[in-house]
Design a protein around this nucleic acid. Structure first.
Length: 211
DNA sequence: ACGAGGATGCTCT
DNA sequence: GAGCATCCTCGTG
């Protein structure tokens, strides 16, 4: 894959309302120039939005509802970092989940990258997902995606606006192809339909039964 | 096809 | 100690 003409999406792309960014990331490319020298590219087909006014967001507790002041404490404070910053955390003790911080610095928000469709580096991806038998088992699901792309906690708080890990323009998705649903795996904020995905795409993770 | 249950560690109460 | 923005394996139908 020739990377000379791939231009990273700038921080201004992410300094917008979180729902807008989550929707706009569909069809864009996630690019990882892996330390091994392999270049991995995936077309984003599923995202979720998390906002500071949202009980499912890690940063929710940090905001004083009456004053609007933000407590600069704990992991979740990193959701208030500069737009385009990585927010990577370990969930269920085993899986790294990749988010990109949104909104202007000081406002909490992030988009969770939930699924991509492989475009380059398929051999590498398959080697990291030996049990995959269906497309979505390769790179569909936020934990599977980071395993397949070799993304871990070492990327936390690093800028996603240039190598080695960044987004590229790709081909935006038309409105007709976009579907929404409640977010997956939550016990709070389930009334908000802030999951965005490409309708019918085989790499979209199947929604599990409700908890 | 579907559901139950286990793995495993960090954050917050 | 509880709760997790998950995934995998192994039952049963």
């Amino acid at each position: 894959m020739e990377l000379n003409n791939i231009v990273p999406l700038p921080a201004s792309f992410f300094a917008r309302p979180t729902l807008e960014v989550a929707r706009d990331l569909l069809g864009r490319w996630l690019v990882h120039e892996h330390p091994s020298g392999v270049c991995l590219v995936g077309r984003i087909v599923e995202t979720e939005a998390y906002r500071q006014d949202d009980p499912a967001c890690h940063g929710w507790r940090l905001v004083n509802p009456s004053t609007g002041k933000v407590l600069p404490e704990g992991r979740a404070y990193d959701l208030f970092a500069a737009p385009g910053t990585a927010y990577v955390y370990l969930n269920y003790g085993m899986y790294w989940l990749l988010n990109v911080v949104t909104e202007p610095e000081g406002v909490g928000g992030a988009v969770l990258i939930r699924a991509v469709e492989p475009i380059a580096g398929l051999h590498f991806i398959q080697a990291r997902r030996p049990s995959a038998r269906k497309p979505y088992e390769l790179t569909g699901g936020p934990g599977r995606l980071t395993m397949a792309f070799g993304i871990d906690g070492s990327y936390h708080r690093r800028p996603l606006t240039g190598p080695p890990l960044y987004f590229a323009a790709g081909n935006p998705v038309s409105e007709a192809e976009v579907a929404t649903s409640p977010r997956i795996g939550l016990s709070r904020g389930t009334d908000r339909h802030w999951r965005f995905f490409v309708r019918g795409n085989p790499y979209v993770s199947p929604a599990p039964r409700q908890r």
